[in-house]
Design a protein around this nucleic acid. Structure first.
Lengths: 107, 107
DNA sequence: TTACTATATCAACATATATTGATTTATATG
DNA sequence: CATATAAATCAATATATGTTGATATAGTAA
């Protein structure tokens, strides 16, 4: 029950569903790419990314001070079903704006 | 997004997951059967049953002053996947106590 | 070391949701 | 009609969660 509710409560927020869809669509993103693309402040993103990671939807890879978030693979069966559901939601995604390309965050 | 989040937020509560599992296991239940079986007060049950119904997990059939709740059929694909997930959660269900058998609620 | 950078965490506040007991509604019955 | 019953809704309160700006942490580089 605990694990199930952790998954569900991670999904129970429009910001996090958008994040999952965005990262699923665009692949691995660092936090500052998400900041520039989704127009969200860093503390807000950090919070939601942690919740999605703790619930088993995302993985993080750290390179120096940078943190790259991507969809965890493999996903649990139900998490995978959920991601499929999120893939077909009629969401208008903002385009990916890479502010990490130069190796320095261009914010 | 709206519909998806309505489903998710309906699931985001231990009481409602328990209700789904209980009704799925025991079949159609009236509110007072749930009161006696789950030891919950009526207003609390009424609230949660409404949320589950509005999210498309339950249906209601009214007979006189009684309301019988059961799992809606057919369920949407994702709702059905979710119910399967709930079926395998390690929950200890209390036994069904029918307080509606005599036609009068024996509370 | 010091300064800088990207991210994480914290504190304060606002909003959303759950619980309870009281009230209301709808239906049935005398 | 008046009364009773089952369920729904409401009002008050408590708890949980999201947002923001400030601060802390960890890594990098001078």
């Amino acid at each position: 029950m605990e694990t199930f509710l952790r998954s569900i409560s991670a999904l129970n927020d429009e910001t996090r569903v958008l994040l999952l869809r965005f990262i699923d669509t665009n692949g691995e993103c660092c936090v500052c790419d998400l900041q520039s693309s989704l127009d969200m402040i860093q503390s807000r993103l950090s919070r939601h990314l942690k919740i999605l990671k703790d619930a088993g939807f995302l993985r993080v890879e750290r390179k120096g001070t940078w943190a790259y978030y991507s969809i965890k693979t493999p996903l649990e069966r139900y998490a995978s079903e959920t991601l499929q559901e999120i893939r077909v939601l009629p969401i208008t995604l903002p385009p990916l704006k890479k502010s990490s390309d130069s190796g320095v965050c261009t914010l």
